[in-house]
Design a protein around this nucleic acid. Structure first.
Lengths: 251, 251
DNA sequence: CGGGCTGTTGAATACATTCAAGCCCCGTGG
DNA sequence: CCACGGGGCTTGAATGTATTCAACAGCCCG
């Protein structure tokens, strides 16, 4: 519920995900926390259910595949990489989790969580314990309603993925990728026009089904055309209109 | 609840989706129907909630984007194409719905359903009316539980999509595509080794981000290597093992 | 039986990948 | 504070794969 903005008065106005935690009211868990009576983060109920606010160092694995999962996890700050590696094949990144977003909803269907979740930078998360819940019938109904909402929102967000990955050429995929990250950051109160990419070029490439070199080259082309301002992982979307045009241009 | 197998004693053992409806016990709505007391398809409750079993002719649009949706739809037979066309761009197919699968779960988050849903062949569906539900508190809780399960299952299924579309080359994508269709058919009681593709090459290509010609050529290559037996839309997966190898071979 | 749509095939082009080399940034240690 | 080292990133040239365009074949439906 409290934020530590840590605003040093530098020229740097971009979002550094690890330096600023999402506010509770922008968090995907907010509805659940509210129903569970967790408006007050110091109460006993709070400690029981949102058991720990965990700090996760960069590179640490939060979850390993096939691990049974009885908590929902909300990203407070930082970023995570969700990946799988079936049968000793190459790693395949299936998505990224940004501040305010939830991890583990898929495990609600009963079976174990199928992905490896690794912190891309120093991060912090809230764990919401689903098993130790003690709610009145009335509250339980509301709680389930909130779960349904969270799931439906995620289902809707997942529908963007085919557009992202089904795009024909590299420029379109990367334009869609940047717009996706941007809108997801904005959705949870971060500036979406200027941010730091939490993932490496290699990770972007893996996720989008491209070569790392292609990602690099397309970024450079965008930069040359004045569409983005990119320097290492620092990105500013200079011309959103043009980016959207590229994203939606059928070839 | 009842099936019309229409088994003509021909040599044709493949699944023709439009000639055979999924059985209720294999349907994604089954849990919901049960809770709602709809074991008996002739009862009044049934007519009230699963209002109509609709027959949808080939090519008809079941839903149009931005349309408000207060029902869940289950595919009984046939198949549907889910697509979007933002701002007059090229159509982008975001998925297919096969017998036993649900359409419209995303609309539970409150906003309108964002896709166009079109029958790929003569189909039939069940509509489950979410607004006219009258359930005891006890049953409502169970009902919500079932909704959560259905959503979580879909969320989990959606996680396969990045693997499908993030694949680097055309052979891998098509192998994954065929395995995906196959397993989804098996899951609802249809033979997964031999079936009729409900969608055109063009649709497959659009969905996978390939050119139609590439789909055609890869199918031919697979055929030549004895991996599949393909004739028009009729497909038999002759060598599942090899198909899986191609699907998981990192390049 | 004919027409039109869907799918196939071939040749030329465009695009992304691969491999290899080098750069730059950042953190470490002197 | 600067030198050093390493990983992430960039750049270039050659290769390979998928696309494009165009023509044709096949099939289904009327």
């Amino acid at each position: 519920m409290q934020t530590q903005p840590e605003h040093r008065p530098e020229k740097q106005t971009e979002t550094r995900l690890r330096e600023r935690a999402v506010e509770c009211c922008s968090c995907g868990l907010f509805g659940l926390c509210k129903v569970a009576g967790l408006d007050e983060p110091q109460s006993d109920t709070f400690d029981q259910i949102v058991s720990t606010r965990e700090e996760v160092p960069s590179g640490a694995r939060l979850l390993t595949p096939r691990r049974r999962l009885d908590t929902l996890i909300a990203v407070r700050s930082g970023a995570f990489k969700l990946s799988t590696r079936p049968d000793g094949t190459q790693e395949q990144i299936v998505g990224f989790a940004l501040p305010g977003e939830l991890i583990g909803l898929e495990a609600l269907s009963g079976s174990a969580y199928p992905f490896s979740v690794e912190a891309l930078e120093a991060s912090s998360v809230c764990r919401f314990n689903l098993t130790s819940m003690q709610l009145s019938q009335q509250h339980m109904a509301e709680f389930q309603q909130q779960l349904i909402l969270a799931l439906a929102r995620q289902a809707r967000a997942a529908q963007n993925i085919p557009m992202l990955l089904g795009a024909k050429n590299a420029e379109q995929r990367l334009a869609l990728f940047l717009l996706d990250i941007s809108s997801r950051l904005s959705e949870h109160g971060f500036p979406g026009q200027r941010f730091r990419l939490p993932m490496s070029r290699q990770s972007i490439a893996n996720y989008l089904g491209l070569a790392m070199e292609t990602v690099s080259r397309v970024f450079k082309r965008f930069h040359a055309r004045g569409i983005i301002d990119v320097r290492a992982r620092h990105i500013a979307l200079a011309d959103l209109e043009q980016l959207r045009t590229i994203a939606s241009t059928a070839m």
